[in-house]
Write a protein that binds this DNA or RNA. Structure first.
Lengths: 148, 148
DNA sequence: CTTTTTGCAAATCTTTTGCAGGCGA
DNA sequence: TCGCCTGCAAAAGATTTGCAAAAAG
């Protein structure tokens, strides 16, 4: 499995299509969440999405957001990430198995993607241990240049 | 930073000593938790530790366990791990910066350590992005041989 | 028109906090 | 003795569940 490509040509139409293909109905809430994920530069939490619309006419229930994100995750449309602060964050899953890793600033909590992944060695080792259907997660934690 | 060594010669005396050195009082609860971590083959959650003693004469409060684990984490005696199921797990921190990574079975949730870590390339890349004080986490998720 | 989805209320689960009494050094 | 620790009760924060009404196809 290779990874590293920057996401390209992802638009709201294509995402809506993936929702339909997954057998889900396309509601305004679902499209709104997809648009939010598309425009947000880094992984976002359910509550952050909620606050973006809270009070506005497009407001939606936090529960709805959790439910939609869970369904999207099951259909591999989004990926759930956890960085150790007790809050799950979500980002759009890239096409065809491509994925990336993250650098998290311990000070400002900002998350930056790293488009580099060469873990062939590691993967072979784990397969030799008897594991199948492998996926992985690699995250770096540090202090970003802005916070130093 | 190199990593890969199996833990050796860790005993309860040495651990008690680390607690004292960190300026903490040595209580029976703290020693009990250290012994539990020492004997448990894989990362364990606060609740699992609680259940090990619940009902017995050595029973301790869940809150106490959380508080002790947090203090131990601050003193780098234990490491907190999260694998995405909403529960934090803990394991003893190995000496002198050595650490290891994990393979988690998606079926039975068992966690196995991998004593392999060659991420020099990756670390250089992230440093080039301007980050300092880097640490990292690398986990593999798959189906173990027993569960296939 | 049928099935899925949403909103609201309430529950659940993990982890944290406040406070008074207890214990280690 | 003195201050750190523990236990109990309660709170807090994230996420889930039940159910009736609303919307999608």
């Amino acid at each position: 499995m290779k990874c590293g490509q920057e996401r390209k040509n992802i638009n709201i139409e294509a995402l809506n299509e993936r929702v339909r293909k997954a057998g889900m109905k396309l509601t305004s809430q679902r499209t709104q969440i997809l648009k939010t994920l598309l425009n947000h530069p880094e992984p976002i939490s359910a509550d952050e999405i909620f606050k973006k619309y809270d009070g506005r006419s497009e407001a939606m229930d936090l529960v709805t957001i959790y439910r939609i994100l869970k369904k999207f995750e099951e259909s591999l449309i989004v990926s759930r990430l956890e960085f150790g602060d007790g809050v799950a964050r979500f980002e759009l899953t890239l096409e065809s198995g491509h994925h990336h890793h993250h650098v998290i600033c311990r000070q400002c909590q900002r998350v930056e993607p790293i488009h580099l992944c060469d873990l062939e060695e590691h993967i072979k080792t784990v397969e030799a241990m008897g594991y199948k259907s492998l996926s992985h997660r690699l995250d770096f934690f540090g202090i970003c240049s802005r916070c130093q």
